[in-house]
Design a protein around this nucleic acid. Structure first.
Lengths: 246, 246
DNA sequence: CAGCGGAGTTTCATTCGACGGGAGTGCCCG
DNA sequence: CGGGCACTCCCGTCGAATGAAACTCCGCTG
């Protein structure tokens, strides 16, 4: 069954890339014989692969399929050089992310040496309401999704993370008004995020461009540059959309 | 069934990232009602997603799962800054690839503006025997895999691509002797590949580092730099392997 | 060295869910 | 307006997934 296979994949987390069969069966809540059989089958398709000893890891084929045809690829490809420049400019982290359910999903993240702490990872998730790009994208999402966020739990990292619905509501309104979001100390006391939207041809935000910098009063100084880069990425994106490939 | 789901994923190619349900059913050779049901189910899991109109595309979740825990991620992450430098140095393309079956699979590819033509893509495949990194990695693979390559068909791009087993055999031997492979005009007449191995702690090559440059007599001039970079990637890789994460 | 226990795979009867024919729905185009 | 197409839904049949249990292969321990 398909759902079981997905459960198996989800047993792997960014921290633990290799697991044993019994470990998988425990995490996925599957019978061990089922797990064994499914792992064998998935391995046959290259979606999983066996490492040294009895370990199992995600297979190259899954990576290949996921990357090959995803609409994400274009976005990432287009944004990469801009992110590079941005990283140099701010001297810390630059990241590109999209909204997935109630989480923010990081498509790409570049860091300069000696940058402030940053919990995000490429292909990693964080609760949308706890991050600058998350609040920004949520502010432009369907009203129903916003309601869901307001109704749901609001996980916090520090005392400054948005913890109650009222504060979230005003943060969303402010995000729409300003066109950007800052997250001073939301995740780490010493760090501050700054996020702006990357817009498609129709004006709807498809992704967030953000930087993580030290949490001091120089944060807003990066805003103009960030906006300019986001605008440019949008431009190139629309051009790439019009005439695919190269 | 699982095999069917994989067939569906494989219906998507790098060129065509969005398909209709009937198109998928045709390519995957599945009954349309089966396809419809499976697509719906896969969409539910986020492995596929529906675009505008009735189009279907690869879902973000597949990308996420594939990227999140793959051993590839470390390799790519480590190599990325080195590839960037290399791209600047040679002024054309730099790529990182691994051997998958009889194909070479490109993990990362960076290009300088105005570079020579290059058919490769990130997450794309090419026949191993037709490329420099492919022949290099094949030369260090199990003997049985080499035999399979020698026995199998040898697809060619130009008249200079390796087309017969004898030439392949001597190319493999030469690759082992030299520790590098050049591919003058194998894929495009005007371009030449140059590939060296990236080695693990035990000395076995895990990937190939290669550049694509114009097909003239300056090709060998890049060899020392390429070797130095490959060595350094291997070094960092071993360190990252010893103490995971950061 | 025998005996234990945990991990993994294989076997097999049961049953559950996938399959695909066919009907139904909405859409485009003549 | 009516035929054709793309897609989804429904449902009886049947095949394939499931999980208990048996079996194998370790490494440990008394």
């Amino acid at each position: 069954m398909l759902a079981r296979a997905v459960r198996i994949f989800e047993a792997f987390s960014p921290g633990e890339t290799t697991l044993s069969v019994s470990e998988i069966s425990r995490r996925a809540g599957l019978h061990i014989s089922t797990t064994s059989r499914l792992v064998a089958e998935l391995t046959g398709h290259g979606l999983l692969s066996r490492g040294p000893g009895r370990t199992v890891q995600i297979g190259l084929r899954l990576w290949e399929l996921g990357l090959r045809a995803s609409p994400t690829l274009t976005l990432r490809q287009v944004a990469l050089p801009f992110l590079k420049d941005l990283t140099h400019l701010v001297g810390h982290h630059a990241q590109l992310s999209v909204l997935e359910g109630m989480d923010i999903l990081f498509l790409e993240r570049l860091s300069a040496p000696g940058a402030v702490v940053n919990l995000s990872r490429v292909a990693g998730r964080m609760p949308a309401t706890a991050t600058a790009p998350g609040v920004l994208l949520l502010a432009h999402a369907d009203p129903e999704r916003q309601e869901e966020a307001l109704a749901g739990p609001l996980p916090t990292y520090t005392r400054r993370t948005i913890g109650d619905p009222d504060r979230l509501r005003s943060a969303l309104a402010e995000a729409r008004r300003n066109g950007f979001v800052t997250s001073p100390g939301w995740v780490e006391h010493v760090a501050c995020g700054l996020a702006v939207p990357v817009r498609e041809a129709d004006g709807s935000p498809v992704a967030a461009l953000s930087v993580i910098v030290p949490n001091d009063d120089r944060v807003f100084g990066f805003l103009p540059a960030l906006r300019a880069v986001a605008m440019e990425i949008g431009l190139v994106l629309r051009r790439a959309h019009a005439e695919p490939d190269t």
